[in-house]
């Protein structure tokens, strides 16, 4: 068979021939220029190649990648030599939420100091106000565009002894919708601290089937087992049933389900 016909058959196999091209192939087969039996055998073999499937990579591949990325990010941060450059970098990092947070802490700190001398009984009240402000700041930063800011916001929640409904809602929204896997994993850890709150418990269970990242799924599975959320077994089973997961993740979920039941 000459090379032009070989190219034509290759195009046919790739499905890139228009009607005219297909007609040309048929004509060449009819004229005996392309051997029918060989053409059909090759076409069938091309279809059959679907049966060769590949396994899924292990979760280690993802872990290795994100470790490499973090290292690269740390290495690519500019190193400032002079005080002026350092100050410039510091001001460059002062986004509005961070600046507002710093000002609030300064004002509240000053106010507490002032009140402490006059009236110790107001201390608890002020402390509660400060916590409210932290919560407000956390919610605001969670909506920010920068991944680093959102991770910091999640970490601020660790400083809060108790969380109100709005803060929990914001964290649950982040768990279900944030595009960054790192942020979602951190959010699972943050929410786990308030594992005795019913809204958190239910929210974490509901979030299981929303996850597309196997790293987050594993973090959630660990969290629901350590919190003893037995009603999450059903959600984990649904994931196993309907989602295409790596074999190691499947085994992890099966172990988690067994631990919950």
């Amino acid at each position: 068979m000459n090379e032009k016909y070989e190219q034509l058959v290759a195009d046919y196999l790739a499905g890139s021939l228009d009607e005219e091209g297909k007609l040309r192939v048929e004509q060449l087969i009819a004229n005996g220029e392309i051997e029918l039996i060989e053409f059909k055998a090759i076409e069938q073999l091309h279809d059959e190649l679907d049966v060769i499937v590949t396994p899924a990579p292990s979760p280690d591949m993802s872990t290795g990648f994100y470790a490499m990325l973090e290292k690269e990010k740390a290495a690519s941060r500019p190193f400032s030599f002079s005080v002026a450059e350092k100050l410039k970098a510091l001001f460059a990092e002062l986004t509005m939420p961070r600046l507002a947070y710093a000002c609030l802490l300064l004002i509240v700190g000053g106010f507490i100091g002032d009140q402490f001398g006059r009236n110790e009984s107001k201390l608890e009240e002020l402390s509660a106000e400060m916590q409210d402000m932290r919560q407000m700041m956390m919610v605001s930063m969670l909506e920010g565009a920068s991944t680093t800011d959102r991770i910091r916001a999640v970490n601020i929640s660790a400083e809060l002894p108790v969380a109100d409904e709005k803060a929990i809602q914001a964290l649950l929204f982040t768990l279900n919708n944030d595009k960054s896997i790192n942020v979602r994993v951190q959010t699972v850890e943050a929410l786990s601290r308030w594992g005795d709150n019913e809204m958190v418990r239910q929210g974490m269970v509901n979030a299981i089937t929303n996850q597309d990242s196997e790293v987050v799924i594993i973090a959630l599975a660990d969290a629901v087992v350590s919190l003893g959320l037995k009603n999450s077994a059903k959600e984990l089973e649904e994931l196993l049933k309907y989602k295409e997961l790596d074999i190691n993740v499947q085994q992890k979920l099966q172990t988690s389900i067994a631990a919950l039941l």
């Binding site: 060769i52 590949t54 396994p55 899924a56 990579p57 591949m61 993802s62 990648f65 994100y66 990325l69 690269e72 990010k73 690519s76 991944t147 595009k179 960054s180 896997i181 790192n182 990242s213």
Partner: peptide, 24 residues
Amino acid sequence: GGDLDKLGLLFERYNRPLFSFFYR
């Protein structure tokens, strides 16, 4: 342009096709 976090999105999207390519 320096937004290295975006490489994570590319990884999530293409790690399986790349793995299959190498595995085959």
